[in-house]
């Protein structure tokens, strides 16, 4: 079973806001996810990225794969 850490878009039209979630890659697109581990708000200046570092490292150590975008966000934050 592949577990992924990905961004999920929330927020209103023209006001994007993303949750960083842990989800099964086989979940269809119905909004199910395992755990929310942070958020990313690009509308603020400077951009706000808030993640729970411990949860990220624990999920990655369990084999969860962050998507490229999430990887970049986390790298910028210095979490991984």
């Amino acid at each position: 079973m592949a577990v992924k850490i990905r961004l999920r878009r929330m927020g209103a039209k023209k006001a994007p806001f993303y949750r960083i979630v842990v989800a099964d890659s086989r979940f269809p697109r119905d909004g199910r996810f395992i755990e929310e581990i942070g958020y990313y708000d690009p509308t603020k200046n400077p951009v706000v990225v808030n993640v729970e570092d411990e949860k990220v490292t624990s999920w990655i150590s369990k084999g969860a794969q962050p998507t490229d975008t999430v990887k970049r966000l986390l790298k910028n934050k210095g979490v991984i």
């Binding site: 990905r6 961004l7 999920r8 878009r9 039209k13 023209k14 994007p16 697109r29 998507t67 975008t69």
Partner: peptide, 28 residues
């Protein structure tokens, strides 16, 4: 994502759904 919000309805259904999955849900 912003462009998709604004012009999404002008795309074909298939294009819109695919972009929503790719950019909105971060699917590979």
């Amino acid at each position: 994502n912003m462009l998709l919000d604004i012009y999404g309805t002008l795309l074909t259904d298939r294009q819109r759904v695919t972009l929503e999955l790719y950019y909105g849900e971060d699917f590979s």
